[in-house]
Design a protein around this nucleic acid. Structure first.
Lengths: 124, 124
DNA sequence: CTTGACCTTCTCACTGATGTGAGACTTTAG
DNA sequence: CTAAAGTCTCACATCAGTGAGAAGGTCAAG
């Protein structure tokens, strides 16, 4: 599969897929003419990458994770990767904190919106 | 209050406070020697800015919001600011989506951790 | 074979929030 | 007065991501 097809199937910009390669997240092979050739499993990998990035993990950590993972479907972590588990636990805590904070922000926004709408309907 | 004191009280880097001024989020006055002089209420304002930034709103939008707000404690929005309400509603939706995605990421991380710990305890 | 549509390559330059450091000036403590 | 601490501006770095441009590859239709 070439880059355009992968971009289309994952919804991720081609430019970004090249960036992920540059960061060591993806390792497509090359055709004779230099075109990147992606494996079917890269579709799933890109999905994982997006999820982890959305969770706020830096690419360097994601690279490490991906190296510890046989992405045979969903079975994971055959390699030892010491320290990684502790790191992941910390990330987990961080995500929890982020969610809590986002909920607070949303609450603040709710209040703001309630006030704003009160204003707006009171003098349209 | 000078910038160091505000930084200390809010936990926000001085550099960042200057950046917020550059972006129009804060408008400290200047002393004769050029030092920034912050008002007591700026402590609360910085808190609001951090919450909104954490929610993913860009500084430009936050500037707009702050201009529509008499920060008399917590009472808000005396100015009309048309279009802002719709914008805020969209941001609200976006935050909801982000929270959902983060929860999914956390779930994925849980699975990863469970597998990892299973591996780790099986062959220590 | 030529043309045109489309795909891919690489490189340079930028964003936005934040970090960091340098060099100059001011204020404060001893 | 001197030293330390605080502040100023300016500039460059980061990190995920975006955009544009120039060059070349691929393929089907004429």
């Amino acid at each position: 599969m070439r880059i355009g097809a992968l971009a289309h199937r994952t919804g991720v910009n081609e430019r970004l897929l090249r960036y992920y390669e540059e960061q060591g997240l993806l390792r497509p092979t090359r055709r004779a003419n230099g075109y990147r050739e992606y494996h079917e499993s890269d579709v799933a990998t890109v999905g994982h990458i997006r999820a982890l990035l959305a969770a706020g993990l830096p690419t360097a950590v994601i690279t490490q994770i991906l190296h510890c993972v046989h992405s045979d479907g969903e079975q994971l972590l055959p390699a030892p990767c010491p320290g990684l588990i502790a790191h992941l636990r910390r990330e987990h805590t961080r995500i929890d904190a982020t969610i809590t904070q986002l909920q607070a922000s949303r609450q603040a926004l709710d209040t703001l919106l309630a006030t704003a709408q009160g204003q707006a309907t009171r003098q349209p």
